[in-house]
Amino acid sequence: MLSIVTSLPMFAPMLTLGAYQAALYIHQRSGSLLLQPVIVTLLLVIAALWLLQIDYDQYRQAANPIALLLGPATVALAVPLYLQRHRIGQLLWPIMLTLLFGGALIIFLTLLLAWLFGAEWVTLMSLAPKSVTMPIAMLLSEQIGGNPALTAALVMLTGVVGTVMAPSLLRLAGVDSPVARGFTLGMNAHAIGTAYAVQEGGESAAFAALAMSLMGVFTALVLPWVM
């Protein structure tokens, strides 16, 4: 009976959505930033696949309908951007300066610290695009000589750690502006940080989405040229 259930076409999407709902419940009940829904969902799905002895390739193919929704979900981030278009226009120059210096500093400090700790070239190139969203980061990593699989893991880790640390650090620094908080989360923690910014309100969500998008474009244009 179990093998019949797991072979149903809707089993993988239902498993993924069920794991995400459980992760949301855990996050809401605990209130802990460490229990981010994205990482908890990942752990729950891995545990389910291991317990049920389901091959990952089989699960990935069956869960493809959810993957197809990632495109529309990403495009939907344009809605808060559109609603805040006048505010973005007012802050255009501060936004561009923050992107230029902040984006360059993120890449420089990442490579410098990794180099000081003795990281090899492949590791350095895998680390360089860690602060941008995963599809862009993996393509950049392959282009500049990194390991896309390692980059994917580092992007996930960066998003989780950034989302956990950024709110506390911003609070300690006395930063309560939704614009600054959202932009910080989007630049440093990409999609996971943007998802957290949505919980803080429309203005924070808009600037997080803007920062994530601009950081992806900036890194895609600058990083291969610098390397």
Rank of each mutant, 00 (worst) to 15 (best):
V175Y: 07
L112T: 15
G159K: 04
A152E: 09
A166Q: 00
L154R: 06
P129N: 13
T151V: 12
P135M: 10
L124Q: 04
I144S: 04
A114S: 05
T158C: 10
W115I: 01
W121D: 08
Q143K: 12
W115F: 02
G118V: 05
S126D: 08
A114T: 01
E120P: 01
G174C: 13
G174Y: 14
V164A: 03
A137M: 10
M134D: 05
P129G: 09
P129S: 10
P167L: 05
D176W: 11
G159I: 00
G118I: 08
P135Q: 07
V155E: 00
G145C: 04
L127W: 06
I136Q: 06
S141D: 10
M156D: 04
V175R: 06
V155L: 00
T123L: 14
A114D: 00
V160W: 03
V175S: 10
M165N: 03
W121A: 11
A173G: 14
A149R: 15
S168E: 13
L150W: 13
S131T: 13
R171Y: 15
T158A: 08
T133C: 04
S126T: 12
I136A: 05
K130C: 07
V132C: 01
L140D: 00
P135K: 02
T123M: 13
V160G: 01
G146E: 06
G174H: 12
M134Q: 14
V160F: 01
L170H: 12
V161S: 03
S168D: 12
G162M: 05
A153S: 15
K130V: 08
K130S: 10
E120K: 12
A114C: 06
E142W: 09
D176C: 13
G118H: 03
T133M: 02
N147V: 15
V132P: 03
M125D: 01
V132N: 01
M125F: 08
A166M: 10
A149W: 15
V161Q: 04
G145E: 03
A173T: 11
T163E: 01
P148H: 13
T163M: 01
L124C: 09
T123V: 14
G159F: 00
T158E: 00
P148C: 11
L127D: 09
V155G: 00
K130P: 04
S168N: 14
I136N: 04
M165L: 14
L170F: 15
A166E: 01
G162L: 05
T163K: 03
P167I: 06
P129E: 07
L154W: 06
G162V: 02
V164T: 03
A119V: 12
W121N: 08
F117Q: 12
T158Q: 05
V155C: 00
A153N: 10
S141R: 10
N147S: 13
W115A: 03
M125N: 08
V155P: 01
Q143Y: 02
A114H: 08
T163A: 01
L140N: 04
V155M: 03
L172G: 14
V175A: 11
A149N: 14
L112K: 10
V122M: 13
S131D: 08
M125C: 09
V175G: 07
M156P: 00
L139W: 06
P129I: 06
A166I: 06
V164S: 02
P135T: 05
G145H: 03
L113R: 11
L113D: 10
S168K: 14
L124M: 10
